[in-house]
Design a protein around this nucleic acid. Structure first.
Lengths: 142, 142
DNA sequence: GTAATTGCAAAGGTTTTGCACTATG
DNA sequence: CATAGTGCAAAACCTTTGCAATTAC
């Protein structure tokens, strides 16, 4: 196995992800890294994101739409994605881990991990929608 | 909204997915459709998969790893992916739907759907691994 | 010095799209 | 005959990779 050497770029990428709660994509990480290292390349960002994920220091969130997202928080937790504004938010989910047991009950293999994602409207969009509905009603009255 | 017209290709794609339980990728669908329509194009397959998913007649399983997978079964259910052979299998999951309530408890928005995926070793791979472990032990003895 | 890491650019895999043509209703 | 759907090819998109130069140890 290759010995790990320090890299400023990798350290910055990790720190950046840890300060963000919005699960940025590789491209967003790249744009932000360019502010610190104007010559950094997208390849370096991808290589480091991949390496950090392998080391377990960040998490890669595949399977939302389009590009992968990255999460600086490595504790097992769930995500919510708003179908209106596409924001991805963390969700308290201690009480959910037990579904691994549920799922394993009628299953001959061995379940060691899971990923749960929730979809719907975030608080902000819910309010927006309610506002719009109210406006619709007013319009119909007049 | 555009009026829908019948298409043999689309019908075949839907039927094909309904006979399969292994969640094929677009490319696998394409290869199988070529047996029926030698001139069918990959673009047509993608367009129809996308259309069928929008109509709710199939389900798109985004990025487990690499290409998207498609599921002819549209009832809400969970999936298991074996980390050894990469097979994707359906999982009984009636008892899991309630996590939507759990997740909604401390959440200001509105949760309307979820997707849960499980990872680990499938029954076959579990047995393979046990066999290998046994062989290792024997080797060490002699 | 040796080997890991970088920047760059080219290539890879997957999916979408513009266009002229064909088939459905 | 109007227009949805098709095949083809090019492009778009996201990610990985080969290589020579740089940096860490």
């Amino acid at each position: 196995m290759a010995t790990l050497k320090y890299s400023r770029q990798r350290e910055s990428i990790k720190e950046f992800l840890q300060t963000r709660t919005d699960h940025p994509t590789a491209d967003v990480v790249y744009e932000n890294m360019k502010l610190i290292y104007p010559n950094i390349s997208l390849g370096t960002v991808y290589r480091n994101l991949s390496l950090l994920a392998d080391l377990g220091e960040i998490k890669k969130l595949s399977s939302f739409a389009g590009a992968d997202h990255f999460d600086g928080c490595t504790e097992r937790h769930c995500h919510f994605m708003c179908t209106r504004c596409n924001r991805i938010m963390d969700l308290e989910s201690e009480g959910i881990h037990h579904i691994m047991d549920n799922a394993g009950e009628n299953f001959g293999g061995k379940i060691t991990d899971y990923s749960a994602r929730f979809f719907g409207l975030c608080e902000d969009c819910l309010k927006e929608m309610q506002k719009e509905t109210a406006e619709e009603k007013n319009k119909n009255k007049t």
